[in-house]
Design a protein around this nucleic acid. Structure first.
Length: 573
DNA sequence: GCCGTTTTCGGCCCGACTGTTTTCAGTCG
């Protein structure tokens, strides 16, 4: 079993925790944490990069030493330095660091003075009142720890963006009703449009902070006030989401928006760049000495750093600052660029609406075309179409198109990729269609090699056009399939096949990193909703968010093409 | 341990809030 990037990242993160507990050089600790983040978010496996002979020290925050350690982990599955440190400092202490309010210093004290090694030990100590007796701790700290241990046990996973949006909209509306408030905007990963959010960072501009904080405390949905100050408060909502609210004066709006939008690593990179230019950058502005030289707008902050405004979706420290500096930022695709939807269902299988209603709804959304992609027969739970029913649907769509004005319905199918890589309908049926969307629905847990070969084989079929929801993942519910995505993308590029970015908020499959990989390899992306009703068509915007996070431009997305250009693009070379 | 428009050494982002202190350490984002 090859070592995954997340395993390597876990080794480094744990080592960082233990070293910090031991009081090691904080910058060395940070180096391991940075390396963990780099490895964790890298779209390619370290093992594969090593196989290809890449020097891992070329990766950001990885030097010669850590490149060597990664190699050792890949080869042996162990990190000798971690084993050595674990002899002195129990590995479980790293788990305690994950509890809110506990950092290295406190974990160390709890271990040294009370012998606390595990979350369970901590719970017992808090219940017995032992913690409050420690110098530097007190009753309030003990109570806070007790609460956090419980919260940790029932900890919510990151919330899907679409769900967080409902929570955020209501909260923004409430806060905007406070006297003296000018702007209320949700920043953080929400504004960067990450597929899930861990908390909400709400930025408010107002002349005085206190009334805003009172307004927040009065909000019905607040379950617990975690902390509360004049300019910053943290609360936990009944929905399980933490909310940070920060109030800044209007003159700092842009700087604060940059700061609270993040990401953290993007901010650090910006600040370093500011320092080199002799500026101090914080949430109140850009300063030359005591003098504020920018900060009213985001653009003014970036401009002072010699950069154009960088769209929030790109602010992940994945090369966007360098691209901005060189004037090479992508011109990201927008919802307005989209001319049609290439994955929709109808009543014929598991959809809710008729083809003609779907077509009207697409027209209302300003589309030029919409395809109907009902399931094939293998998906029996959806009453999938066999050859006869699909051919009947094709004729029905022809008749419908003759009547429709201003919208064209494309004849398609979501044909199953069977376990042996063949398609669930014969070629002589598929050739009657405008194009196909092909998908894996069963046998999702094959080995990486088998799953990859299954899809490669399917792509060999000349009627294969678009690979739908390529990894099969469901956010927070089902992990992606084991796949050699890069190999599949290379194959798609050679064969003129397209990858879908499924816009359903539960899927968002491909993810951002994979979109960027597809773009680099030159594979076209279809951003498609997989709508099972007319309402489903509106999830397109989540797909566009993800596409933008993947650096995709209009030219990378096939359903920005006119109908004629799309039809040409769908022809396999 | 990483890194370089002050480059191979000497830096490494910066401010708010809390609790336990009497001026600040710890933690967080």
């Amino acid at each position: 079993m090859p070592v995954h990037n997340s395993d390597i990242a876990d080794f480094f993160a744990t080592l960082a925790d233990l070293l910090e507990i031991e009081g090691a050089n904080p910058f060395r600790v940070r180096a391991y944490r940075n390396a963990a983040a780099t490895v964790r978010s890298h779209p390619r496996r370290m093992a594969d990069l090593i196989d290809e002979g890449m020097d891992l020290a070329e990766l950001p925050d990885i030097g010669d030493d850590l490149a060597g350690k990664i190699q050792t982990i890949v080869e042996t599955g162990r990190l000798p330095l971690l084993d050595e440190v674990a002899q002195r400092t129990p590995v479980e202490l790293s788990d305690l660091m994950a509890i809110e309010g506990l950092g290295a210093k406190r974990v160390r004290r709890l271990y040294d003075e009370l012998g606390i090694r595990s979350v369970e030990d901590l719970r017992r100590a808090a219940d017995s009142g032992a913690i409050r007796e420690l110098p530097g701790f007190g009753p309030k700290t003990e109570e806070a720890i007790r609460k956090r241990v419980e919260a940790h046990a029932g900890r919510e996973r990151r919330m899907k963006l679409a769900d967080a949006e409902d929570v955020a909209d209501a909260l923004v509306h409430w806060l905007a009703g406070c006297d003296g408030v000018r702007e209320v905007v949700v920043a953080g990963s929400f504004r960067r449009r990450r597929e899930t959010v861990g908390d909400l960072d709400v930025l408010v501009t107002a002349s005085k902070g206190a009334p805003v904080m009172q307004r927040l405390a009065d909000y019905d949905e607040v379950d617990e006030i975690v902390s509360s100050g004049k300019t910053r408060s943290t609360v936990r909502l009944h929905a399980g989401l933490s909310v940070d609210v920060r109030v800044v004066p209007q003159v700092s709006y842009g700087a604060a928006l940059v700061y609270f939008t993040g990401s953290k690593s993007h901010n650090i990179a910006l600040r370093k760049r500011g320092m080199r230019k002799g500026y101090k950058v914080n949430e109140y502005g850009v300063f030359k000495g005591e003098r504020r030289v920018a900060g009213q707008t985001e653009a003014s902050v970036y401009a002072k750093l010699g950069l154009p405004l960088i769209p929030p979706e790109l602010r992940e420290d994945r090369g966007e600052i360098d691209a901005a500096r060189r004037g090479r930022l992508p011109k990201l695709v927008t919802l307005e660029d989209i001319r049609g939807d290439l994955h929709c269902h109808s009543k014929a299988t598991d959809g809710r609406d008729t083809i003609s209603r779907m077509a009207e709804a697409a027209k209302e959304r300003g589309y030029e075309y919409l395809s109907i992609n009902d399931h094939s027969k293998h998906v029996s739970v959806a009453h999938g179409l066999d050859r006869k029913r699909l051919l009947a649907q094709v004729r029905a769509i022809d008749r419908l198109n003759a009547k429709l004005d201003g919208i064209v319905v494309l004849k398609s199918v979501e044909v199953d990729i069977l376990e042996d890589g063949s398609l669930d309908l014969p070629d002589d049926v598929l050739k009657e269609l405008d194009f196909t969307v092909c998908a894996v629905h069963y046998q999702l847990r094959l080995t990486r090699r088998k799953q990859t070969e299954r899809i490669l084989r399917a792509m060999d079929n000349p009627y294969f056009n678009i690979l739908a929801h390529p990894t099969g993942r469901l956010i927070n519910r089902r992990d992606p399939c084991e796949l050699d995505l890069e190999r599949l993308l290379e194959a798609a590029h050679e064969r003129g096949c397209i990858f879908e970015l499924n816009a359903h908020p539960d899927r968002l499959d491909l993810n951002d990193e994979a979109c960027r990989l597809a773009k680099d390899i030159g594979v076209g992306i279809a951003v498609a909703t997989d709508a099972h009703s007319v309402d489903g068509l509106d999830t397109m915007r989540y797909g566009i968010d993800q596409a933008r996070r993947g650096w995709l431009e209009k030219k990378d997305v096939v359903n920005t093409l006119s109908l004629a250009a799309l039809q040409k693009r769908l022809r396999r070379r």
